[in-house]
Amino acid sequence: MQTLFPQIKPYARHDLAVDGPHVLYVDESGSPDGLPVVFIHGGPGSGCDANSRCYFDPSKYRIITFDQRGCGRSTPHASLENNTTWDLVADMERIRSYLGIEKWVLFGGSWGSTLALAYAQSHPERVHGLILRGIFLARPQEIEWFYQAGASRLFPDYWEDYLAPIPEDERHDLLTAYYKRLTGNDQIAQMHCAKAWSTWEGRTATLRPNVQVVERFCEAQRALSIARIECHYFTHNAFLEPNQLIRDMPKIAHLPGVIVHGRYDVICPLDNAWALHQAWPDSELQIIREAGHSATEPGITDALVRATEEMARRLLNLQPDEA
C-alpha cells in the first residue's frame, strides 16, 4: 500500500487579493521546476492542511495549495459575500496566471472534484489532466440524499443529532432551516447548527469510525466555515445548471483522468462516479473496496498516490524505473 509522502514546508506563500473583501491564502511546495499540480480542497468550506501537499512526489511536482474564499487561512473567514462556484473558478484562473503556470494538473476530492470539473470545462486548454476522488456532481438528488432523506436511513442515531437544532415543524426543508440559522444574528444558534452539520459529515465520512476525522470536522472555526459555506452553496444548487457537469463533459473528454471512489461512500454515493465515468469513457475508474468517502482511508490514499505517480510518469515521459 502506498502512503503519503513526508510533510514538507512551502517554499513560497502568497496573499492574493481577489474580489472584495476576499484575500486568498496560496502556497507553493515541492520542485519549482516540477509538473504543476493544484490541490482543490473539499467542502466547500474546508481548507487545506499540511497533508494536502503529501499526495505528490515533491521531486516531480510543483505543488500549489490554496484556501478557497472564506476557508482556512483566507479572509474574511466564513464569508458568503461574492462566494459562488464561478467566483472560485475565476480565482483558480487568477492563481494560475499569477504564478506563471501555463497548464496544470487538477487534483480534487468531494467538492474539490466538483470545482475541478467546473474549472476544466471552463478552461480546458489550461489543464494537463485530472485526478478526482469522492465524486460530487452537485445535482439536487445528491444534496437531498445527504441533507434531507437517504443517508439518514443508514445512520439514524447520527441523524438524530443532525436534526436536533431544527424544530419539528421546519424539518420538511432542512437546508432552508439550517440556512436561516447559519446566516442569522444569533451566534449561539449559529454555532450550535454549525457543529451539528459538521459532526454529521465527519461521522459519516469513513467506513470505520475515525475519531480524528470527526474532531477535525468539529473544530469550531472549521465547523463554522464548512456549515455556512456548504449550506449557502447547496441552497443554490452550487450555482450550476441542472446536470451541468455531466452535460459539459464533451469539453474535456480528451483529457486524461483518474476517478477514485470508495464503494461504501455514503456522503457521495458511487453512482456519482459511475455517471461521470460513463460520460468520460477514457477515464480510469478505481472503485476502492473497504472505503467510504475520506481521503484518509488507506485504500483511497494508496490509489491517489499511485495516480499522481502515474500522471507524472505520463506527462513527464518518464520510464517506469524513473517514475
Score class of each variant (00 low, 15 high):
Asn82Ala: 11
His14Asn: 05
Val105Leu: 15
Thr75Ala: 14
Ala12Arg: 15
His123Ser: 06
Ser31Tyr: 11
Ala17Val: 08
Leu106Ala: 01
Thr3Pro: 02
Leu132Gly: 00
Met92Gly: 00
Cys71Phe: 05
Pro10Glu: 03
Pro36Thr: 01
Arg62Gly: 01
Glu28Pro: 06
Phe56Pro: 04
Ile131Ser: 00
His128Gly: 00
Gly109Thr: 04
Arg94Tyr: 07
Arg73Lys: 15
Ser122Ala: 15
Pro58Leu: 09
Pro21Arg: 14
Pro76Asn: 06
Ser110Met: 09
Glu102Gly: 07
Leu106Asn: 00
Asp91Arg: 14
Arg62Ala: 07
Cys54Gln: 13
Arg13Glu: 15
Arg94Ser: 09
His77Tyr: 13
Ala12Ile: 06
Ile8Thr: 09
Cys48Leu: 06
Leu80Thr: 13
Asn83Trp: 13
Leu24Gln: 05
Glu125Gly: 04
Leu99Cys: 07
Asn82Ser: 10
Arg94Ile: 08
Met92Thr: 00
Asp19Val: 13
Ile95Leu: 13
Lys103Met: 07
Leu132Trp: 03
Asn83Leu: 11
Met92Asn: 01
Ser79Ala: 13
Ala118Arg: 07
Val18Phe: 10
Gly134Met: 11
Pro32Asp: 05
His22Gly: 03
Thr65Lys: 13
Gly129Leu: 03
Gly20Arg: 14
Lys60Gln: 12
Arg69Asp: 02
Glu81Cys: 10
Gln7Gly: 05
Tyr11Gln: 05
Gly108Leu: 10
Leu115Ala: 03
Cys48Phe: 08
Leu137Cys: 04
Ser122Lys: 14
Trp111Met: 02
Val127Thr: 01
Leu88Val: 09
His41Ala: 11
Gly72Asp: 01
Gln2Ile: 02
His22Met: 06
Ser46Val: 13
Asp67Met: 11
Thr84Trp: 14
Gly100Gln: 09
Phe136Ile: 02
Ile64Gln: 02
Val18His: 03
Ser46Cys: 07
Leu117Phe: 04
Gly72Trp: 02
Val38Ala: 12
Ser97Leu: 09
Ala120Lys: 02
Tyr98Asp: 07
Gly100Ala: 08
